[in-house]
């Protein structure tokens, strides 16, 4: 265009990159990129979910017996903790959008505490597995599934034949692979939360440049969704079989 109109260089924030036409376009591009990353994450976890599906069909009695060793109380508590942390993170995004620095800092701290609570409960569960020789590897012992001990207040589990009992190691391998990768995502997320907490306290988000917080919110909710599927698959669906 040869003619430069009056007012063509309209107001835009300093953090708008020069190659974007508008802030909407910049924001759209950032969240589009974040979603593409999340799609690769769906494929990554999807592979493990598919492996779980196939092996569960293959070694069904072993997967049922393995599932019975998990604590429904701890699993349910952790689900509630993680959903609440997703809620506090959503509130953090809202505080950032409405430029409430104090609310944002509080939301990030609450999300961090709930994330720590989740990992704490998870480590209690992992420790129990270690004590019971259910961690795959040299310490693994399938004999507890051949001759199950009577738990107080619970019906005695029927024993498995030795070859099927040994396949419980596959259940626990998938259990540790899936919950372990999920926990790793949470640890990475909590590192990013600390980073955002420091920046928020310095007032870095007060000018409305909050793409990082919004995209972190997407990541944190994605980790929540992974757990929403892990919980019923690992803990619940084999209760009665």
């Amino acid at each position: 265009m040869a003619v430069v109109h009056e007012g063509e260089h309209h107001e835009h924030p300093a953090y708008q990159r020069h190659h974007f036409v508008s802030m909407e376009q910049q924001k759209e591009s950032a969240s589009f990129g974040m979603w593409l990353f999340l799609l690769t994450e769906i494929m990554f976890f999807g592979g493990m979910f598919t492996a779980y599906l196939i092996y569960r069909n293959w070694y069904y009695p072993a997967f049922v017996a393995g599932s019975h060793t998990l604590s429904i109380v701890l699993g349910t508590t952790n689900t509630a903790v993680l959903i609440t942390s997703s809620f506090t993170m959503a509130m953090g995004v809202w505080c950032a959008e409405t430029r409430k620095r104090g609310g944002l800092i509080l939301s990030i701290i609450l999300t961090l505490i709930l994330g720590l609570a989740f990992l704490g409960i998870k480590s209690v569960e992992y420790h129990e597995k270690w004590v019971q020789h259910h961690v795959p590897g040299l310490r693994f012992d399938a004999m507890t599934f051949v001759h199950p001990k009577a738990e107080p207040g619970q019906p005695v589990e029927p024993g498995l034949p030795l070859d099927m009992a040994q396949h419980t190691e596959i259940y626990f391998s998938l259990y540790f692979a899936m919950t372990g990768m999920h926990a790793l995502h949470m640890i990475i997320g909590m590192g990013l939360l600390v980073f955002m907490l420091v920046k928020a306290m310095r007032g870095a988000y007060d000018n409305g440049n909050i793409a990082f917080i919004e995209n972190f919110g997407l990541y944190w909710h994605f980790v929540d969704i992974v757990w929403i599927f892990l919980f019923p698959l690992l803990y619940l669906i084999s209760r009665h079989q």
Binding site: S86, F87, M89, A90, G217, L218, H221, F222, D224, I225, I228, F229, F231, P232, L233, L236, I237, R239, H240
Partner: peptide
């Protein structure tokens, strides 16, 4: 019976949909 898995996954899909639509 087999409906335990169907119900559990159905609820999980519903929860995930809510998270994607509103939280995300």
């Amino acid at each position: 019976g087999p409906w335990n898995a169907v119900v559990a996954l159905g609820i999980a899909v519903f929860k995930a949909t809510l998270v994607v639509l509103f939280f995300m």
